[in-house]
Write a protein that binds this DNA or RNA. Structure first.
Lengths: 223, 223
DNA sequence: AGATTAATGTGTACAGCGTCCACAAATGCT
DNA sequence: AGCATTTGTGGACGCTGTACACATTAATCT
């Protein structure tokens, strides 16, 4: 006989815990990943606790080891999923840019949208955003398929595309194009971090948004 | 009778563990803080483990609770100490700027030095740098005395000073001065994070330095 | 179809963690 | 000298990640 586990947080989310009538779960890998993502969303990286993840999936703690080498491996998977969601947020913001007919103007608007989407996601999903850029080994997964959104691109690739457009629209000299991803990325990433984790945490959304637009102005001028 | 604790890492740093012949330690608060700082320096935030800190100080785990409310309190203290060290690194870099007689040129050079010091510290002490900007409640300790370097200023205040100089040298319009700390800070902070934790970790120091200077160029142009 | 192998989940156990409580030892105050 | 306060100890509790042996089910091969 095997028993089902119950969460310590059962009071409010008992209904979320997957009950199961078969010995095999069926799709435990996905269930674990989704539970972990949800925990990260609500409580940040420290909230991802292997035993709680398995509790929510309705399996014994050790079952996780059949699908992830260890906790770090699960965290990396969450990180990539978070990048994918970030990519979606960026593309969603990109989609709001209506072509004006002016190629240069549109390219700039798209770059701005990329930055705005990044900042918006960071503030609306701080837990996931933090996960997106921790636990990396190198920049290899900046182009890893698991980190892509529905458009098939990672956040890094979306930004690269916007910068390429800027060049072909004649708004960015080619000699400044190289490695400019890192410059734009740094600025927006830094503001995102300072807004959610850093010393300007707690400043209102209006103030944050205004600051975000000024930051993007700075990048546009300075690139 | 009371026994002294020994670290699990005794093999190589037995000599570092404070032995003690008196029941009272004498300066345990400082000893704990310094041990925690050292752990953060070597292994990052996750390496700060209360029991290991007390082991290195040669006291029982619970002794820490006479000097810090809990682990979080100790982490905040380390964070402030890290900010202080960052301030020192920035001031050290500032000190290398020789006055040229040209006020405008000097103000720009000092702003660049502030950014360079920031980036240099982040790369030479990544563990401490990460601690400096985590575990904050708000921006109140951006000006907290415990976060100041030997010059009596926090990193934030040093940056503010450099920007004020830029204005009085006529190199930055006054209407752009307001909140410009956050713009400059964001850019440099973001690059620092991406260099040490993010996807461009592992890129050589030369490349990082070149990128840093290009980023500072961008800020100068775009502010 | 039946047997064997592989995949997946369980149970038990261990060391380490942060923290609570009661107690011991040293210091400071009147 | 006596007492109150501060500082450190010892033991316990519930939690964590994970190793190992075992149980159950699904897949593969005769």
């Amino acid at each position: 006989m095997w028993t089902l586990y119950t969460s310590t947080l059962d009071k409010e989310n008992m209904e979320k815990i997957a009950k199961r009538s078969t010995y095999r779960h069926g799709d435990l890998h996905r269930a674990l990943l989704e539970a972990a993502i949800e925990l990260a969303r609500k409580g940040g990286k420290n909230a991802i606790v292997l035993r709680e993840v398995t509790r929510q999936a309705g399996v014994a703690p050790n079952a996780a080891y059949r699908h992830f080498e260890d906790l770090g491996s699960l965290l990396r998977a969450v990180s990539m999923a978070a990048q994918a969601q970030l990519a979606d947020a960026m593309e969603k913001e990109l989609a709001t840019v209506k072509p004006s007919g002016n190629k240069a103007e549109d390219a700039r608007a798209r770059l701005r949208a990329v930055g705005t989407g990044y900042l918006t996601f960071a503030q609306s999903e701080p837990g996931l955003f933090r996960m997106a850029f921790s636990e990396h080994a190198d920049m290899s997964n900046a182009t890893h398929p698991a980190s892509t959104g529905h458009g098939g691109l990672t956040p890094f690739q979306i930004l690269s595309g916007a910068l390429d457009d800027l060049v072909s629209a004649g708004e960015l000299p080619a000699e400044r194009r190289v490695a400019s991803e890192f410059l734009a990325w740094s600025a927006v990433h830094g503001l995102a971090m300072l807004l959610i984790d850093g010393p300007m945490r707690g400043s209102g959304q209006a103030q944050a948004e205004a600051l975000g637009q000024r930051l993007i102005d700075m990048v546009e001028r300075g690139l």
